[in-house]
C-alpha cells in the first residue's frame, strides 16, 4: 500500500526535493532575502505527489488504460470491429502480423503509482544511509545528495536493483516543479513560490488588461533602449 505515505517516505521525498530544487537558498543568493518558507518540503510537494498517485488508483482511468495497453499489446486486434481483420489487412496489402505500440508514442502517460512504488523503497534505504540522524539536514548536504543521485554516483544507492537514481530524481524533479506551479489546487502556504522567485507571472486564473500590457511594454522598452543605447 503506497498511500498514505509512511513517515520515512515523506522524510525522504522532502529531503531529496529540497536538495534537487533548493529554491530557498537560490532565492537567498539572488535577492539577499531569506526565504526559508520557499523550501519545497514546506510547500505541499508531498501532498501534490499523493494526489498524482491517487489518479492512478486501480479503478481510475489512467490505471484502466494502462491495463488495457497491456492487453492490446498481447492481442492488438481484440477490439477490432472488422469481422475478418486478417482478410481486410490482406486486401490492403498490409502485413498479417500486427503490433500495438502506443507505449512507444509517449501517449501512455507516466504511471506515478508504479514510479513511486518502484523507486521509493530504494530511495528510502539510500536516504537513511546517506543522511544519518534526523532532519533538518544542512542545505549543502541535501544539495550534494541530489547531485550525487542525478549523476549516478551516490555510494548509498543500492546496487543490483537495476534502478537508475538519475531517472528517479528526474521524475521527482518534474513533479516538484509541477507542484510549485500550483496547478492542481493543492493547499500550500505559498502556492506560487517558484514562479514568484523566477519573476514568472504565469498563473492559473490569470487576467490582464490592455493597460497592464501597455505598462509592461513601456517598462521593457525603457530597459531595452537603455541597454542598446538608443
Amino acid at each position: 500500500m503506497l498511500l498514505p505515505f509512511t513517515s520515512d517516505a515523506r522524510v525522504t521525498l522532502n529531503a531529496i526535493a529540497d536538495g534537487i530544487l533548493p529554491l530557498h537558498s537560490w532565492y537567498a543568493v539572488k535577492t539577499g532575502t531569506n526565504c526559508d518558507d520557499c523550501r519545497p518540503s514546506r510547500l505541499g510537494v508531498v501532498e501534490f505527489i499523493e494526489g498524482l498517485i491517487r489518479q492512478w488508483d486501480p479503478s481510475g482511468p489512467a490505471s484502466i488504460w494502462s491495463k488495457r495497453v497491456t492487453n492490446l499489446q498481447a492481442d492488438p486486434l481484440s477490439s477490432s470491429p472488422i469481422v475478418d481483420p486478417v482478410g481486410w489487412r490482406r486486401s490492403r496489402g498490409l502485413d498479417p502480423g500486427v503490433a500495438f505500440e502506443v507505449a512507444g508514442s509517449g501517449n501512455l502517460g507516466s504511471d506515478r503509482m508504479r514510479f513511486y512504488e518502484t523507486y521509493l523503497p530504494v530511495a528510502i534505504t539510500c536516504a537513511k544511509a546517506r543522511l544519518p540522524g534526523r532532519p533538518p539536514w544542512p542545505d549543502d548536504e541535501l544539495e550534494r545528495f541530489g547531485q550525487e543521485l542525478f549523476e549516478r554516483r551516490c555510494p548509498n544507492w543500492p546496487a543490483g536493483t537495476g534502478l537508475d537514481s538519475k531517472e528517479f530524481v528526474s521524475g521527482l524533479l518534474l513533479d516538484v516543479v509541477a507542484a510549485l506551479m500550483s496547478m492542481q489546487g493543492i493547499r500550500s502556504p505559498r502556492p506560487f513560490a517558484l514562479l514568484e522567485a523566477m519573476n514568472q507571472n504565469r498563473r492559473v486564473g490569470n487576467r490582464f488588461t490592455v493597460a497592464y500590457a501597455d505598462v509592461a511594454v513601456a517598462a521593457f522598452k525603457r530597459e531595452l533602449d537603455r541597454t542598446m543605447g538608443w
Binding site: 530544487l21 537558498s25 541530489g146 542525478f150 524533479l173 517558484l194 523566477m198
Partner: peptide, 28 residues
C-alpha cells in the same frame, strides 16, 4: 515562452539544484 513546465527543461533536466533553477530563470 509560455509554459515553464514543458519548456524550461523540467521534462528532461540537464542538471538539478541551483543550476536547474538558473536554467528556469533564464527560460523566463
Amino acid at each position: 515562452r509560455k509554459n515553464p513546465l514543458s519548456e524550461s527543461g523540467a521534462r528532461f533536466p540537464k542538471r538539478v539544484g541551483r543550476g536547474f533553477l538558473d536554467d528556469m530563470s533564464k527560460h523566463n
